[in-house]
Amino acid sequence: MFSSEAVRVFLAVVDHGSFSAAARALGRMPSAVSMAVGQLEAELDLQLFERQARSTVLTPAGLALLPQARLAASHLQRLGAQALALHEAPQPRLSLALAPELEGAGWSAPLAALAEAFPPLALDVRVLPQAEAMALLREGEVQLALVFERHALEAWEGFEEVGCELLVAVASRAWLAQVAGNAPLRSETLQETRQILVGSRAGEHNPRLIHSANRWEAGSHMAAMRLVEAGLGWAFLPRAMLPPSGQGELVELAFDNMSNQVSLWVDVVWHRERPLGTVAQRYLALLREGLRGQPPL
């Protein structure tokens, strides 16, 4: 009935809207696609498509089977990828993309043990805005990405939550004196003054971190910190990046009507359709072990 080939043909007709369009996508004759669908319908004793003049539309039975067919196609793709991986010798390589806010997190702690277990280990760590880090992961340029929680999960994402990062609202002493003086600071002040955001080329930002309509973008948190130190605006920065309280030009802002902190969950993400190799799996295990009993990232 639903063999891997039958699933492929069925979904091609659904996705391309007709037997002829599916045939072009599959590199076959339309008659071969029509015959394959007809044979599937005969074996199932169900009509899957309404044949119309210019298009092919799913019947209620076809609609009912469609979600399971897509799930089966996804499982078959992963099965094929896993089988291919079994033919390849494990490569002592780890490639990792980090959101800039997480440079100071605990991602580097497992690397000493990993290098000892795999002496010829090749390591590639890239620090990029989150959207770009996830794009590299999706395209297969890296094996893992350490990023903040996403607003919605893509079907291809496998992930494990590994902690949280605390971001705090900060400004320079000079900025605070000019904007607030001795008056209590309220959230409305943030909305009326310039905010420094760490941006990506796609212009994507976590909405929890946006408070002002007047925004400048910096390519990294270090650049954002320099702009804040110069008194050019305020920003949410990782607390781990800040100097000890009372030292330096930066100060944590304190508000009358809201907290000055935002906690974001941190995930390690991988592509579910690209099985992780031995090295990446070992890194994940070491990361889990290192986080037991430790404070959040």
Rank of each mutant, 00 (worst) to 15 (best):
M241N: 13
S263M: 10
A224R: 02
L286N: 07
A213L: 06
S263K: 11
L250N: 11
A223N: 05
P244G: 04
V251L: 05
W270I: 00
P275A: 07
V266Q: 01
P243Q: 06
R226K: 14
N214V: 08
A285S: 14
V266K: 00
W234K: 06
E217S: 13
A224G: 09
E229K: 03
M241R: 15
E252L: 08
S220G: 09
A254F: 07
L291Q: 12
F255L: 03
G233H: 12
S259C: 02
R274A: 14
H271C: 01
Q281H: 04
E273A: 11
M222R: 15
N257V: 14
L242S: 10
N260M: 02
Q281D: 09
R239A: 13
L286R: 04
R272S: 12
P238A: 15
N214R: 06
Q261V: 09
L276Y: 09
W234L: 01
A213Q: 09
R226M: 09
N257F: 11
Q247A: 08
E249T: 14
W265G: 03
V268Q: 00
A254S: 08
E229F: 04
L287P: 00
D267R: 03
N260G: 15
N260Q: 12
V268D: 01
R274I: 02
T278D: 08
D267I: 00
S220N: 09
H221D: 15
V251C: 03
N214H: 10
A224F: 13
A213N: 08
N257G: 11
L286T: 11
A254D: 14
M258T: 13
R272I: 00
G233L: 10
A235E: 11
G233V: 14
M258Q: 15
H221A: 12
T278I: 06
P244Q: 09
L242I: 10
L284A: 00
L291W: 13
A285E: 12
L227V: 08
A240V: 12
W234S: 05
A254N: 07
E273F: 03
R288G: 00
P275R: 06
E252S: 05
R288N: 04
W265H: 03
A218E: 09
R239V: 15
V228F: 07
V251N: 08
A218D: 05
H211D: 03
S259Q: 11
L286P: 07
R288E: 11
A224Q: 02
V228H: 07
G290N: 15
A280H: 02
S245P: 06
R226L: 10
H211W: 12
G233N: 13
H211E: 13
W234N: 06
L284W: 00
M258L: 10
L227R: 03
G219F: 01
G293T: 05
G231C: 11
R282W: 01
